[in-house]
Simulated assay, not measured.
Amino acid sequence: MKYAHTFCSPLLAFFLAFASSAACGDTIKRIVHSDGSVEFSNVKSDSPLASDGAATVYRYQDKYGVVSYSGERPANAKFSVIRFHCFACDPSSTVNWDTTPLFASRYNEQIETAAKEFNVDPALVRAVIHAESAFNPRALSPKGAQGLMQLMPATANELGVVNAMVAEDNIRGGANYLAQMLARFRGDTKLATAAYNAGPGAVSRHNGIPPYAETRAYVKRVGILYRRYAAL
């Protein structure tokens, strides 16, 4: 959910596992900087720690050992830099979406339960999860979207999601929102997924898929993933 999207811990093992997986889209890089800070990113940038506002999330521990996240660089704490963008949203991605490995069995019970509750095809829910986070339950985006289906805090609150970082709650909220978009756009999956990415207002204003390169790439790739998951 672009107008909606985040990463977290346990960082090292999780990210290094993802870094070699074609299913995750572009490579996630681990960079150790001269000050000892560590960065995990799938964002193309020549200057990983450049000051680019909302494009960076800092993960650090305060003096009490509490893990915190901030858009501002911590002054007196070691930190990890997290820069994560929706896996299926980069128009220049070189991933072959017709062959990239699928996540065929992850969160089956949660997806089936949520899909049945909101009358959404579970294959579509799974395709959106794959496109949004590549099934990373701890995904955090620079803009604040959270979890598997990348729910923005305000959207999660409206959907009654207490903790978007809990997989079951996130999937239920995302399936609910996806069902709302399908109802609004009369079952048209392309328009519904375009709304999931760019917002329903943008789809209505443009009377169709908005002319945004990211949204058009996203809709096309979700469609491919949906077809593939439905065929399993």
Rank of each mutant, 00 (worst) to 15 (best):
M1G: 14
A13I: 06
D26T: 05
R227P: 01
Y226A: 11
G160V: 11
P48I: 06
F79P: 04
A4F: 03
S93P: 07
L232P: 03
N197Y: 14
D121T: 00
Y58S: 06
K143L: 13
M149D: 07
I28G: 05
C24Q: 14
D62N: 13
F15I: 04
F84K: 07
K2I: 12
C24T: 13
P210G: 11
A139L: 02
V67P: 01
Y226R: 04
F40L: 07
G53K: 09
T27S: 11
S20C: 10
A104F: 01
A202K: 14
V43T: 10
L182M: 08
A183N: 15
I209F: 06
C24N: 11
A164T: 02
D121Y: 00
G208L: 02
S45D: 13
I28H: 04
N96T: 10
C8L: 13
S68F: 02
G199W: 06
E72A: 15
D169W: 03
D62V: 00
E39P: 00
V161L: 09
P211E: 13
T99P: 06
T189Y: 11
A213I: 01
F79D: 10
A50R: 13
R83Y: 04
S80T: 14
K29R: 14
E72K: 12
A75T: 10
I209D: 05
L182C: 01
V120F: 02
S92F: 00
S92A: 09
A213G: 03
F18A: 11
P122Q: 08
H206T: 04
E117I: 00
H33R: 01
F7C: 01
D46T: 03
M165S: 07
A114D: 01
G65S: 09
R83K: 14
P210M: 09
E109S: 15
R138L: 06
V162Y: 15
T189N: 14
V57G: 05
V43D: 03
L140D: 00
K143M: 13
G160P: 12
L182F: 01
A192T: 08
I171D: 13
S105F: 05
Y226N: 04
D90K: 15
R59D: 08
E132N: 02
T27C: 12
K190D: 11
N119Q: 08
P200Q: 10
V38P: 00
S51L: 11
E168H: 06
Y226C: 01
F7N: 00
A114S: 14
K143Q: 11
F15C: 04
T6I: 14
R106V: 09
V128H: 02
V81C: 08
K78L: 07
S70W: 04
A154Y: 04
D52L: 13
G199Q: 10
Q146F: 02
N176R: 15
A4V: 05
Q146K: 13
A55E: 12
F14M: 05
E214D: 05
P122D: 12
Q150A: 07
A114K: 06
F40Y: 15
K190Q: 13
P153K: 09
R186V: 14
D46N: 07
N170R: 03
A198R: 05
A22P: 01
K116Y: 03
D121S: 03
A50Y: 07
Y229R: 04
S105Q: 05
Y64D: 07
T27E: 15
R172P: 00
F84P: 00
A194N: 12
L49N: 00
I171F: 13
K143F: 10
L232R: 15
C86P: 03
A19H: 08
P122A: 12
I209T: 08
S70L: 02
S34T: 01
K63Q: 06
